[in-house]
Write a protein that binds this DNA or RNA. Structure first.
Lengths: 137, 137
DNA sequence: CGCATTAGTAACCATTGGGTAACTACTTTC
DNA sequence: GAAAGTAGTTACCCAATGGTTACTAATGCG
């Protein structure tokens, strides 16, 4: 159980119906992580994001950005120009979260070999292939 | 693009088919986060975890633990006793990740009010209710 | 014998998340 | 007048995720 520093809230992440289950919403979703991380590099347009995040469909990019905007992590600015220009930027709140997410990203990148080794040892064929490919290089 | 410190790997999280997409696998999944965080408090048995993580079904607990074990983040020890006793513990690798996840968890807890305010402003009825309930306290 | 306890797994179903493709709206340029 | 470029949305479909329920195995205890 944790007591919130600023307000008087008392809650426990492990309980259902607890507001901090929003954590899960923030982290889940296949594209949230990549989108937030991409925006760390600064303000970007829809098409730029689509190009950067390989494999994201227009629908999911839009949906993910809408979600982040909803939570106040990303701001969306429409410029009155032709052709239209819309850009997205992390808010201060978003920046904070992005920093933490980036830590995990860096950690993961540095431990890819270890995790692959574990997976391969447990019989994961994809991990075995990847390891073999990396070893051959 | 990031170059791995220990090996010679070069990869980019934003590319598909990149090994660091494992990040996503680690973070996604409704229960991974809670399970890892729960295990930060030390070695635990199946039933203890089930009690702690409110709402998790036996199936999902088992599946989540199996996944974490697969990746080498959690170790599973079976004791030759009757009734059977099995306990789970974070490995060194798991501990590291758990620490980072906890940062995000703490951040989220501290910013619940802000995020709820944003959501409420964007017309989210659940957020409006929660805010009203918190205000009344 | 039969029940209780622990730690599951298996089968089945409902929900949701995500992908694909097609379509809109607006204006400048050819 | 038609095409191109920008930023989307909508409809439709499939696959993955997760929930529910029922079942197993092993053994000590009354």
């Amino acid at each position: 159980m944790v007591t919130n520093a600023t307000e008087g809230y008392t809650f426990d992440v492990f309980k259902r119906h607890c507001a901090s289950h929003m954590v899960l919403d923030l982290l889940s979703g296949k594209w949230t992580y990549l989108t937030v991380t991409a925006l760390r590099q600064g303000r970007m347009r829809n098409a730029e994001l689509a190009r950067k995040i390989e494999g994201i469909s227009p629908k999911m990019l839009s949906q993910t950005l809408r979600g982040l905007e909803h939570d106040g992590l990303v701001s969306r600015t429409v410029h009155a120009e032709v052709p239209p220009r819309v850009d997205y930027e992390l808010t201060a709140l978003g920046e904070e979260l992005a920093g933490l997410m980036d830590q995990i990203c860096i950690w993961a990148q540095n431990h890819v070999p270890e995790i692959l080794t574990h997976r391969a040892a447990n019989g994961d064929p994809e991990a075995q292939e990847r390891l073999a490919a990396a070893g051959a290089r």
